[in-house]
Amino acid sequence: MDHLDALEAESIYILREAKAKLDRLAILWSLGKDSNVVIWLCKKAFFGHVPFPVLHIDTGKKFPEMYAFRDRYAKEWGLSFIREECPPLEATDPTLPPAARSAARKTLGLKAALAKYGFEGLILGIRRDEEAIRAKERIFSPRDESGQWQLKDQPPEFWDHFMTSFPKGTHVRVHPILNWTELDVWKYTRREGIPVIELYFAKDGKRYRSLGDQDITFPVPSTADTLDAIIAELESTKIPERAGRAMDHEAEDSFERLRRAGYM
């Protein structure tokens, strides 16, 4: 087994634990490279099937390429697809900086969707190496009745025994690729031939390393226009992945505040 095999095996184990122990589960599909890998891993874990609804919390501000990708692969992958809209900006915490406020719409949209469908668990493609606060996450990460993350008092998690039962009214975030890196995601995408949105590839000297809303996501300088070139670029770069995500950088604790409140 090589390193990618080991990561894949761990993720499959996590997804199967989630399916065995939780009743109403959904996958959050942000249309980016990470959640595409999660959907792919589901097909690996469940022998070609994705046995959970796939939820897109739509801010209405994604790139057209992302919507085209979504509509195509929701069909091709045979997904049980759900689209939910986010509430307007006015509904968010006005003390947050502007870009974080924009991102917070997603948190509210997610909470509304959870309430509407009664999901007990949500599978997300976040990774520890993306951001220092995400590095502290658990693989099975409980959220309290108000959807908040108690990051200062997380349950212990060891020996692959996850927290799989919960008090009523709470839900759990399941993070099957938490231990992967950006580079792992691309190497796996290349090995498996997972489809990719073309925005990730360099055009006119720039490419997107991370995809979010059009107005708060910016491309970074790059000439990487193939998977091989992206992998080579990441093996040498020291620019952080979320450099192009405005909401992370407005204030020192923006991201921490977003995540405590339930941001993914």
Binding site: A132, I133, L151, K152, E252, D253, E256
Partner: peptide, 21 residues
């Protein structure tokens, strides 16, 4: 450079485990 949480930096104490490569 490691203590990511606001309260970790304020108190100068690591609260939860983190991972760095």
């Amino acid at each position: 450079v490691l203590d990511a949480m606001q309260s970790e930096r304020d108190q100068g104490v690591t609260i939860d485990t983190t991972q760095i490569r």
